[in-house]
Simulated scan of single mutants.
Amino acid sequence: MTTTPRSPRLLLLSTVVLAVAGVALLGAPHGQEPPAPATSSAAHAATDPSASATAPRASQPTVATTPSTASAAAAPSSVLESALPPHGEGVAGDRAVQRSLEAAWPADLPADDERELLTAGRALLRADATGIDRAKWPDVFPDSGQAVAPAFATARFRIQAAIARQGGSPDQAVVHLVWAGMDRGGTFTDLRITDWHFTRTIKKGAATWTPQPRT
Rank of each mutant, 00 (worst) to 15 (best):
L26N: 07
L13M: 11
P86I: 00
P76N: 08
S71I: 13
G131T: 00
D143W: 07
P85Y: 04
S100A: 15
L125F: 02
W137E: 08
W105F: 11
D113R: 02
A129G: 02
A64C: 09
S50I: 12
G121M: 07
D112K: 11
E81G: 00
A72W: 01
S71M: 10
P34Q: 10
A123Q: 06
V91F: 07
E33W: 14
A42L: 11
S77R: 15
A83Y: 04
P85Q: 03
L101V: 05
P110R: 06
P106N: 02
A104R: 00
T130K: 03
P85K: 04
A45Q: 11
A45T: 12
A149L: 13
A135N: 05
I132F: 10
G145E: 09
P49L: 06
A46L: 13
P29L: 05
A135D: 10
A51R: 13
E102F: 02
P150Y: 05
L109H: 07
L118W: 13
P110M: 05
G27K: 12
A24R: 13
V23H: 11
P34K: 00
L25A: 13
A21S: 09
A96Y: 04
L124D: 06
G88L: 03
T130H: 06
T39M: 05
H30V: 12
A75K: 12
G27A: 15
V148Y: 01
A129L: 03
Q60N: 10
Q146V: 01
A74E: 14
A64N: 14
A135M: 08
P34S: 09
P35S: 07
V140I: 07
V140N: 00
A21Y: 07
D112A: 15
L117W: 00
A103F: 01
G22Q: 08
A151C: 02
V140Q: 01
H87R: 12
H87K: 09
D143L: 06
V63I: 13
E89N: 06
V20Q: 03
A38I: 04
A74W: 10
Q60S: 15
